[in-house]
Amino acid sequence: MSTTTPSQTGHDPTLNSHQPGPLEPENLSSNVDLPPDPLLDSGSFIDANPSAATSASFTTATNDPTLDKREPIIDQESAAPANSNGAAESVTTPEKTPQRQSAAAESVTTPDKPPRRRSTAASSTESLNWLPPGWKVEDRVRTSGATAGMVDKYYFDPVSGHRFRSKKEVLYFLEFGTKRKRKVENSDPDMESLESSGSRKQKKSGAKGNTSTLNFDFENPPKKIRWVVMGRSEDTWTPFTGKDTEKVSEPVRQAWAAAFKSVSKDRYATC
């Protein structure tokens, strides 16, 4: 990001006199070997200070909110290459505006490609460099149900005590200071978490097909499931495994319902 500040151009009349006019901004920041940006006017800088002020309550782990607002709709996979790419060309310019200082310290700034998700710049899915210090990570193994044995990563904020189930959730929290609310694109929070955890699972288990985002093991159905009517008024059936003894937990049941829905292509599903 070419970050020549207007204040500096104004500051230094002597420099101005030394340099040819049109090149002046580039030369001012010439200790940075950035190519001139055709899209940026000289003397301008990419910083959305007005909107930064609106959400200025967060300080350290935040970035330009206008840029990062796109994060929820960016797929993890698609965003990652851009970030690592940006990291490689990352340049930190000394002439940052004060507001940009914190971001500049760790930020990825290329002149033509503003970083979309700064805080993930230096991280892979495995390393936890992106996690702020003090946060706890826990690997929990599912102990029951059809997905027993799968490992879920949980992140704990030491300050608020909130628990997060994905990196996405953590990043959102760091940015906006609140837990994530679902956007209109997908109105069902359960479905969302199912999907995100499902896709994460698939990545870890080594590139299975990307055909389904469901967290559902299609290949290994149990031998027998007993479905029992539970409600008198509404048609509620509850699955049990193992000879009527073990009730299938609600999240698992919902995963099954989702899987059913996906497989039957909504032809029968009304659930």
């Binding site: 299609f218 290949e219 159905p221 048609d235 059913f260 497989v263 039957s264 659930c271």
Partner: peptide, 29 residues
């Protein structure tokens, strides 16, 4: 697949159930 079952006990006394076929393998997922 016993998990992929949608029963409906209709008011007219008919129990209607849809069960998804189990088609594996293919192994590749």
């Amino acid at each position: 697949d016993p998990r992929l079952f949608k029963p409906t006990f209709r008011a007219d006394g008919i129990l209607e159930g849809v069960v998804i076929k189990f088609k594996f393998p293919p192994k590749d997922g």
